[in-house]
């Protein structure tokens, strides 16, 4: 069961007249994030008329609804009744996804700077990054960017003071306690440490993203020759070897 402290910290705040933000404890924690996903699943199962979609974030859940079907107060009342069922022990199956990454050089132009600023060798930085799987707290930004954590505290750096205008699709980047993958080329202020040839987001696929909130991502180092010659065949072999349980 969920601790009473956590339940007390739940608040229901309107974000305009079509969305309610259910805010959990104001901390970044896998436990809180699990409670968010637990509540999301409970609300889905309850099938409340008027709710259009649920969008989990780090420590909050957005409930998008049609106010012509159900009004704010009425919906909050119904949502509050579900609080007691939140369970951070509940088995919410996330996938484990292995992502091939080539680190440093042109693929990860900020790797050396990260090493310098953290007083580690580039090799150590790479070792630390791939030493454990990361929880996908949420997906967002503009096209399925997975916000993953928690990064080893030795690697924590603030965002770059001067964001890049274009970060290539596939870039693996870190900022604060998070690590993420740029799913489309876009501007960004994170430190780029590597690049993955694996396509995790394709707007023409259904669903578009293979990485979802609640999944775990494990980065696996490959060399630049492997990365440059990556193709569908290699991806199939990779998935067979690493991602076959998906």
């Amino acid at each position: 069961m969920v601790t009473s402290m956590l339940r007390k910290s739940l608040s229901y705040i309107p974000m305009g007249e079509k969305t309610i933000i259910i805010k959990f404890e104001d901390i970044l924690s896998p436990k809180v994030n699990k409670c968010v996903r637990s509540l999301s699943q409970i609300i889905t199962e309850r099938n409340i008329e008027g709710i259009e979609r649920l969008i989990p974030a780090f420590n909050s859940l957005a409930v998008c609804y049609n106010p012509i079907i159900i009004k704010f107060n009425k919906l909050v009342e119904q949502l509050k009744e579900l609080e007691d069922s939140i369970n951070d022990e509940r088995d919410i199956k996330g996938n484990k996804i292995f992502i091939p990454v080539v680190f440093g050089g042109d693929y990860g132009p900020d790797l050396e700077e990260v090493a310098e600023r953290t007083n580690l060798s580039s090799r150590d930085v790479v070792g630390i990054i791939q030493s454990k799987p990361y929880l996908v707290y949420m997906v967002g930004f503009i096209a399925g960017f997975p916000y993953c954590g928690d990064l080893d505290e030795r690697l924590i750096l603030p965002r770059r003071s001067n964001p890049r205008i274009k970060i290539p699709k596939g870039s693996i980047a870190i900022a604060n306690e998070q690590i993420g993958l740029y799913t489309i080329s876009s501007p960004g202020g994170w430190h780029i440490v590597g690049w993955s040839p694996m396509e995790t987001f394709n707007p023409h696929h259904e669903p578009p993203s293979i990485i979802n909130a609640g999944d775990n991502v494990q980065l696996v180092q490959i060399n630049s020759e492997e990365a440059d010659s990556w193709n569908e065949q290699r991806q199939r072999e990779w998935d067979l070897k690493w991602n076959s349980q998906r």
């Binding site: 974000m15 969008i55 909050s60 957005a62």
Partner: peptide, 10 residues
């Protein structure tokens, strides 16, 4: 803040 969902109009 810790990042949250946002929507047009915010």
């Amino acid at each position: 803040i810790i990042s949250e969902f946002i929507t047009p109009g915010v």
